[in-house]
Computed example of a mutant assay.
Amino acid sequence: MPQDRLAALQAAVSRHCPEKVTHTAFDFLTLYRTGTVTDPVLVVYEPRIYIVVQGQKILHLHDQPLPYGEGEYLISTLDLPVSGQITRASAERPYLALCISFSSTEMEQLLRESQSALSRQARKLTLRKENSSPISAMGVSRITDDLLDALLRLVGLLARNSDQKFLAQLYKKELLYLFLHGQQGHVLQETAHLQSDLSRINRAIIHLRHHFQERFEIGTLVKIAGMGQSSFYKRFGELTGMTPLQYRTKLRLQEARRLMVHEEMSAASAGFQVGYDSPSQFSREYRKTFARPPQADLQHIRRMGVDAYTAQHEDVWF
């Protein structure tokens, strides 16, 4: 990767992102920066393309580490609860990143309009060889020269006053095309097909995210996905790195922590609110996830300052 072009992209992102989070004039593009490393924070990564321009961070997918940093991009195709931590950042050389959102409809249209130079099987072999993720719905790859050039053109549009949004949509289409035919292209293809395993699991995950406080039978999720039970369990684990119950636990604990910090709810009430009948089970699982029991964790956050804690959530979201 030519260092001069990477340096140009770093300068452009830094110039257009003076604060922690910048929602740009393009609704699909968000810029991020932070000048400090962060503690691990549990967040949910939505389907997006995340590109680190400068610095480094690490995600933990159900205790499996996934580092990615300068000159790398991460594609997430499902809503995944992960622990995120920025591990390389300073005031002199801040962590810089950008996020590109996309929809399954966009991918479907792009697939109809384009023909791949690589076969589906070739893309699968490339992914197995180079994707460093322990799960198949999220992976890290190096930015290619073509991607770097396209990103430079897109960010460069932010300095222009005319035809920004029209050209931005064209540049976005170019970027999605390049990602679609890159190392993780076959995963993006799966998002465009309603009957793919990824789309089926995603429907179950959407239901789980809306009903995680409730008791549920695994058969409900299997029915929503429209799969056999054994294949549902197998594909859910391959795509998320978790069982459905482990996924639900992550969502429950994240919401309980939010209730304690921002709603000033007691640990017992927060645990009950998110679906726990047993305070001891809630405390045990909370400590396993956040390394401290609920009350000690709340005291730690208050010592840090709620504003600082909230800022860290914004930082590690990307």
Rank of each mutant, 00 (worst) to 15 (best):
S14P: 00
R123S: 09
H16A: 06
S280N: 10
I86L: 07
H300R: 15
A159C: 07
T126F: 07
L80A: 06
Y95T: 03
Y286Q: 06
D39S: 14
D39M: 05
L208I: 00
V306C: 07
T38A: 04
S283R: 13
I49F: 03
L253H: 04
P134T: 09
A97K: 01
S196F: 03
M260G: 05
K250V: 09
G55L: 06
D27E: 10
G305C: 07
V52A: 12
S231P: 00
V21I: 15
L29Y: 01
V306E: 15
L78C: 02
S114K: 13
K172P: 01
L239H: 11
P294E: 07
L111M: 14
K223P: 02
L78Q: 03
K173H: 11
G237W: 11
Y32C: 04
P294C: 07
I100D: 00
E106T: 07
Q273K: 13
S162Q: 15
V13P: 04
G271C: 02
A296V: 07
E130C: 10
A225T: 07
T36D: 04
E113L: 11
L245F: 12
I143Q: 08
S141H: 04
K124G: 10
L170F: 04
S83L: 12
Y177Q: 14
T77V: 10
M260N: 06
I100R: 00
R5A: 06
Q54G: 02
D27C: 01
H181R: 12
V261T: 12
Q299K: 11
R120A: 13
K20A: 11
A97R: 00
N161C: 07
H207A: 09
I205F: 10
A256R: 03
I218G: 11
P2F: 02
L125R: 12
L110F: 04
V43A: 01
H300S: 14
L111Q: 13
E314H: 15
S119H: 09
C17A: 13
K57N: 10
G55D: 06
Y177W: 12
H262V: 08
K165P: 00
G237I: 03
V43M: 03
P294Q: 05
T30I: 13
N161P: 00
K234F: 10
H60E: 14
N202A: 14
Q121K: 13
R303A: 11
R15K: 13
P293C: 01
L259P: 02
E70I: 01
R209L: 02
R257Q: 14
